[in-house]
Computed example of a mutant assay.
Amino acid sequence: MSDQCLFCSIVAGNVPSVKVAEDDTTYAFMDINPGSDGHMLVIPKRHSKDLFEIPADDLTAVTLAAQRIAKAAVAEFDADGVNLLNCCGADAWQTVFHFHLHVIPRYVDKTRDRLVLPWQPGTPGDIEAIVTLGSRLSATLDGRLSATLD
């Protein structure tokens, strides 16, 4: 745990939260700045700054807890869908530097759902750029895989 981390303080019980669920590895609580009715966060109890630092076992536990909670939230709140969101880095909207997944129920009724997209899904991108970037990343990943096998 980090003494300077808000989410570590929540897990320790030093900062109040509206707890939704807890197990040995994870803690889920309501977001106090919700994008929709029922918006919550699922975090590992062990401090990890972000997606790049979280150990695989904690990431797995958080993801499985988020899935279980998302299913319950959609049913309980009569939501029309759900988003799982992770922001990694300040430029990607991360504001608390303790890994977390947002579980955001989504509603057709916009009085219950205040989120709007900053981009338009379904708008085709530049296929040449997509192929180039995909090829670069694939080559990088293949290189890392080969290096770990040697």
Rank of each mutant, 00 (worst) to 15 (best):
D3K: 08
Q4R: 12
V11R: 00
A12C: 05
S17W: 09
A21N: 05
A21K: 01
N33Q: 07
D37C: 10
H39K: 11
M40G: 09
M40C: 15
V42E: 02
I43K: 00
I43D: 00
P44E: 05
K45C: 12
H47D: 04
S48W: 13
D50Y: 11
F52P: 00
F52L: 12
D57C: 03
D57G: 02
D58Y: 05
L59T: 00
T60P: 00
A61L: 04
V62G: 04
Q67N: 14
R68A: 14
I69L: 12
A72T: 12
A73Q: 12
V74P: 01
A75F: 09
D80W: 04
D80S: 11
V82G: 07
L84Y: 14
N86M: 13
C87F: 08
C87M: 08
C87I: 01
G89Y: 05
A90I: 00
D91A: 14
F97H: 12
F99H: 05
F99W: 08
F99S: 01
L101W: 09
V103M: 03
V103S: 01
Y107K: 07
Y107N: 08
D109L: 02
K110D: 12
D113E: 06
D113Q: 07
L115S: 12
L115E: 09
L117S: 13
W119R: 03
Q120Y: 06
P124Y: 11
I127V: 14
V131Q: 12
L133M: 08
G134K: 04
S138F: 08
L141D: 09
R144V: 05
L145W: 03
S146C: 04
A147K: 13
T148F: 12
